[in-house]
């Protein structure tokens, strides 16, 4: 958002989350909301990441542990299915990988610059020693 002059913004430094009216926020998924330029939803913290999660849906059981424990609202679950990661908002903490219960894990951390397709192709097999 461009820096504005003193006469160009709302009084009291008040911010509005949405453009115009929103009737039922809790019943409206993010993709259907008209976020204003002042919602951090439109911003990105992707440049915070040194490592990033890669999602392998072949092993995912849609348990939603990653969804509930993601601090950054970056696990995209729709209709009870995990469908991907919001890479604009993911800070690369790695919690999703730690809480993933599948064997092998459905989420793994890789260097930020790693190529996703290469990593998916080289995904580890089931670890027999794990419980």
């Amino acid at each position: 958002m461009a820096n504005k002059g003193w006469d160009e913004f709302e009084i009291g430094a008040m911010l509005r989350t949405f453009e115009g009216k929103i009737d039922d926020i809790a019943g409206t998924l993010q993709e259907n909301r008209a976020y204003s330029q002042n919602s951090s939803f439109v911003a990105s913290v992707a440049d915070w990441r040194i490592i990033k999660p890669v999602f392998n849906k072949d092993f995912c059981i849609d348990c939603q542990f990653c969804w509930v424990y993601c601090p950054d609202i970056s696990i995209i679950s729709r209709d009870k299915k995990m469908i991907g990661i919001d890479m604009d908002h993911c800070k690369g903490c790695g919690i999703c990988v730690e809480v993933c219960p599948t064997n092998p894990k459905s989420l793994m951390m890789f260097p930020e610059k790693a190529d996703e397709e290469t990593e998916l192709a080289a995904w580890p097999a089931k670890n027999e020693e794990k419980k």
């Binding site: 820096n3 504005k4 002059g5 003193w6 006469d7 913004f9 009084i11 009291g12 430094a13 008040m14 911010l15 509005r16 989350t17 949405f18 115009g20 009216k21 929103i22 009737d23 926020i25 002042n38």
Partner: peptide, 24 residues
Amino acid sequence: EHPVTHGVQTEEDWHFEHKARQHN
């Protein structure tokens, strides 16, 4: 239907403008 955020933080890049607006 029009949620608002009151009482934000403004640092050196915004604070002066807001205080100036108020004084104006």
